[in-house]
Every structure is written in structure tokens, then in C-alpha cells.
């Protein structure tokens, strides 16, 4: 990712060559997806879901977490934050994140044929991945308790701390977009 950007900007700066190569390298957002039609997609997992169902279900949960996170972020930016809205959203995060350790069974990685930003390294470094999940769940629980207390400054701190645990995992285990 970084290399691609550098490779893209260097010619812009130097004004030389590589322009078309750069254009072709642009927009990798969907490169990893080879369509959801592969036979892997419909293979059944031990938990009864198909691979595709599992991946889509976790993405939906993560979307909800992201949405709740944005609600909190928006309110914290405001001059008069709506504490009730923050409290509802803060309660959503740990609720949605329950059982996250089970969302990534073997076979739901980049080879599954389903569009996913989960990287193969998740299954190579399972220990670390699981510990990052519990870091986030703990931080989210603290955020929720803090939010119910209603002190906006403290909520801001807990929010940043939780956000840091999302980022720590994404930086390593999620395809950078």
C-alpha cells in the first residue's frame, strides 16, 4: 500500500514516466474480491453457516460497531453532545462485539472466494488476533460503563482508548484500503 503510493507520487514529483503503470495500479479496493460465486462460498462451516453467511454476518456486525462509533464521535465533536445518544451507542459496541472470537473460523479468509478484508495472517497468528479481540472487548466495556456515568471528558478518553484497540487490530489483520 505504502509502496504503491510512493511509486505513484515519485513520478508525479519528478514528472517522469510510470504514469500509466500508476493509473493501472490505482484503486485496489476490490482487487481481493474474486466474486462471491466460488464453491468455497457455499461450503458449510462447523457452526452451520456457509462461508459466505459467516463473512457477511461479521461484516454486518462490524458495520454496526462502526456506526455506533461514529455516533459517539459525532456527539463528542459537538458543542452540546447528546449524552443519551452516546450512551445508547456505547452500549451497542460491547453487545455487537460479543463472541467476536468465533467470527473468524478457518476457511473464511482471503482464499474463500468471498469479498473480505480479513488477511491470512489472522490464522497464522491466532493468539495475537484473539488477544486483540479481548483488548477491544475490555476497552469497549469500559467505554460503556464510562458513558453511563455521563462525564463527557471521561467518555472522550475511553473512546480514544477503544478506538486505539480497533486500529491496532486493523493495522495488522485487515486489508488496508
Amino acid at each position: 500500500m505504502k509502496m504503491r503510493k510512493i511509486a505513484c507520487l515519485t513520478p508525479a514529483v519528478a514528472g517522469l514516466m510510470l504514469l500509466t503503470a500508476c493509473g493501472q495500479g490505482g484503486g485496489d479496493a476490490g482487487d481481493e474480491a474474486s466474486g462471491a460465486s466460488g464453491e468455497n462460498a457455499t461450503a458449510a462451516l462447523p457452526n452451520g453457516m456457509t462461508v459466505q453467511e459467516q463473512i457477511e454476518a461479521r461484516q454486518k456486525k462490524l458495520e454496526n460497531i462502526g456506526g455506533a462509533f461514529k455516533t459517539i464521535s459525532d456527539q463528542l465533536k459537538s458543542d452540546s453532545p447528546d449524552v443519551a445518544a452516546i450512551q445508547t451507542a456505547a452500549a451497542t459496541v460491547p453487545a455487537e462485539a460479543t463472541g467476536m472470537a468465533d467470527w473468524f473460523p478457518e476457511g473464511t479468509g482471503p482464499d474463500s472466494g468471498v469479498e473480505t478484508e480479513a488477511l491470512a495472517i489472522i490464522w497464522q497468528e491466532k493468539e495475537d488476533f484473539l488477544s486483540k479481540i479481548s483488548d477491544m472487548q475490555n476497552a469497549a466495556a469500559t467505554l460503556n460503563t464510562t458513558a453511563q456515568g455521563g462525564d463527557v471528558a471521561a467518555i472522550g478518553e475511553a473512546f480514544k482508548a477503544t478506538g486505539g484497540t480497533c486500529k491496532a487490530c486493523h493495522d495488522k489483520f485487515r486489508l488496508d484500503d
Binding site: C8, L9, P11, A12, V13, A14, G15, L16, L18, L19, C22, G23, G25, G26, G27, A29, E63, G66, G67, F69, K70, D177
Partner: peptide, 28 residues
């Protein structure tokens, strides 16, 4: 919404590559 904001972020990233190419053409 969160989803729309993510779409803007994706576009923001994509557009930068186009911008870089045109800056390159400009300098060339």
C-alpha cells in the same frame, strides 16, 4: 451515515491516485 462516510473515504483514496497521475502529466 457511517456507510456513506466510508464511501467518501474510499473515493478520497481513489481520487488521490488520479490526482497524482494528472500532477505527473502537468509536470511532464
Amino acid at each position: 451515515s457511517f456507510g456513506t462516510g466510508r464511501d467518501f473515504a474510499d473515493y478520497h483514496e481513489f481520487n488521490f491516485d488520479i490526482l497524482a497521475v494528472f500532477i505527473g502529466l502537468h509536470i511532464l
